[in-house]
Amino acid sequence: MTAAFLYTILVLGGLGLVLAIVLFVVANKFKVEEDPRIDIIESVMPGANCGGCGFAGCRAFAEACVKSGNLDGKFCPVGGNAVMSKVASNLGVVLQEKAPMVAVVRCHGTCDNRPTTNIYNGSPSCRIISSLYSGETGCKWGCLGGGDCERACKFGAIKINKRSGLPEVDQDKCTACGACVKACPKSVIELRNKGPKNRRVFVSCVNQEKGATARKACAVACIGCRKCEKVCPFGAITVQNNLSYIDFNKCRLCRKCVDECPTNAIWAVNFPVKVPQQNNE
């Protein structure tokens, strides 16, 4: 009896010892020397591995930071200035703060505003729809409603509203990583300054058709009438290819354009109630 126990303990213990030695030797032999700052920087990163910074993941970002020794062109949109200041202090460089951004859906072609002209019966994917044809409505520019942005978002911040068929951004969850912008084949989504108190003014349309055609397809289309361009006191609005665009760096949120727009294509969100049609569900 005792012998059996003894042998078992000896054999198993010996085996464990031998393997431990092998592991130790191998681990030492193949040790990879790494800058310890990579681990430190990785630990302050959000760890979402979303790729919003343009690198393969948080570790790749940390490696790139340490390797180059500066933060030129490197910014973690998820962590924002808070995380980046930690990264900067670890690298011993000064951070240039960036204004927080948010994804904005520039289309309001809901079922009521933009009636469908046919029924799509394929896989629900914007890329498939856009490679196949112009979409279910008369507007070939706007949101296709396939939900590629929703699937691309790692933070659950953008969701298709079943009623309107359009994506809606949860501005508190959105980290402005830009995944939805890349996923959208129609370039409907844009990263814009989050704005003071989250207040933003933007043109919620991407239709570049001439006024009459655009209006025929969608009740709230930008018709390129240039009224907003004329009324803007800051020169923030330009109209190109029948489409108005507000430069968020120049816009001072006076909202004159919102009142001027004949098709309600310009949206002002998170302002105190003044504009009757604004509602950011």
């Binding site: 394929g122 498939i128 490679s131």
Partner: peptide, 12 residues
């Protein structure tokens, strides 16, 4: 399963 829908896109 709409096999070809996704295969076609990924092939491109």
């Amino acid at each position: 399963i709409p096999l070809l829908d996704y295969i076609r896109i990924s092939k491109a």
